[in-house]
Amino acid sequence: MELPVVAAPMAGGPTTTRLVAAVGSAGGFAFLAAGYQPPEAVAAEIATARATGLPFGVNVFVPTPVPVDDAAFRRYAARIADEGRPYGLDLAAAPRTEDDDHWAEKIALLVRDPVPVVSFTFGLPPATVVRDLRRAGSRVLVTVTDPAEAAAAAELGADGLVAQSGHAGGHYGTFTPGSPTPVRPLAELVGPVVARTGLPVLAAGGVAGAADVRAALAAGAIGVLVGTLLLRADESGTSPTHRAALTDPRRDRTVVTRAFTGRPARGLRNDFIDRYEADAPLGYPALHHLTRPLRRAAAQAGDADRVHLWAGTGYRAARAAPAAEIIEELTRPL
């Protein structure tokens, strides 16, 4: 990569092959998001990205379920049932779905059809997976949120790390969702992770401009992931509802919530979070599957109070522009 900026994987729509190509063409590096996609869709995106001739990576969710017992799940489903009725959804009767996001099939695809870099989120992949991917020619990165997780990833044989601050938008990559690492500034996370492992580190979380990029690089990172700053990029797949919320003056803060997916994630505060956060159990992916039809319907209807609005603390700096312009703005002062 010519520039030390990486487009973070944003599962569920914002990351597109157009965005990956635009960032790569601008001199950065970009990740496809395999999360929540069937293997066939991931394979198609890999083929499209490869046709550009630009290097890229693929991010995969490690299946580290957070079980929720049926009674707690049913209580929460009944609690949020009123939210689905305007869209014809019977949330109270929704099944409790636990799955591994097609883990085995996605790993088999990446071993069979290797990409330059594979990154993992939500925990440590098995050592055999790391071995097979490296033998296939991929470099393997693991997302970590504190020095202890970083040490475990280094011992596993990871080629590098993504150090994710709690200021990041979307799901925390923490190995312990029931007790996530206390939030600390990104530069204060990068330094200890680099010192503990000596591995190359990409820094992620709360980046709002070039000053944050400089601070992360000064702390020892070799590159900085940006996600929230690309949500309004011309090439992103962010829904119109989400885009509008990022500029809505009433959305004046981000909060950490498990109300939508049962796993801690940072997003813009809205009515759904206010109403249900106190009652939401830990339970991933069961709660993700429970609320997913509601979130899709709400996004299509422009209802920003019933959809997850993932965003990091730097969300006010996100602007509507070509991705290349955003990347250039972040790196011009370097």
Rank of each mutant, 00 (worst) to 15 (best):
Y276A: 02
R316Y: 13
G191F: 05
V20C: 10
T181E: 08
G88N: 06
V66M: 09
D159F: 07
A92T: 03
D303F: 01
P114M: 14
E45H: 10
L133W: 03
D274P: 10
N270H: 07
V256W: 00
D159V: 06
G262C: 09
Y87S: 03
P95R: 05
Q300M: 14
A299C: 06
R196Y: 07
A323K: 05
Y284S: 05
Y76Q: 11
A280N: 06
G227F: 02
T97Q: 10
R263P: 07
R131S: 14
R251L: 12
I222T: 13
L141E: 04
D212K: 04
F73M: 06
A163I: 08
L309W: 02
A221T: 05
R184P: 03
V60Y: 01
A244T: 14
T128L: 13
L89R: 05
T15R: 01
P185L: 15
P65H: 07
G283I: 01
R74G: 03
A265L: 06
A30P: 06
G53F: 12
R251V: 08
T291N: 08
G57L: 03
R316C: 15
D99H: 15
R214Q: 15
P185T: 10
G198V: 12
L186Y: 04
L294D: 00
V62P: 11
T145P: 01
V140A: 14
Y284E: 06
E40I: 09
V307N: 00
R139L: 15
E83I: 00
L124G: 10
I273D: 03
R184W: 02
R96N: 11
P39D: 10
Q300F: 02
R269Y: 13
P200C: 12
D146A: 08
S239M: 00
N270Y: 02
A215R: 13
E149L: 05
L231W: 01
P249R: 09
L330Y: 10
P4I: 06
P4R: 01
A151D: 11
V62T: 15
A216Y: 14
A265E: 00
L110F: 07
L199G: 04
A11N: 04
A298D: 01
I107Q: 04
E277M: 13
T15Q: 02
H242Y: 04
P333E: 08
T197F: 04
F61S: 00
I80E: 03
P14G: 04
R139P: 03
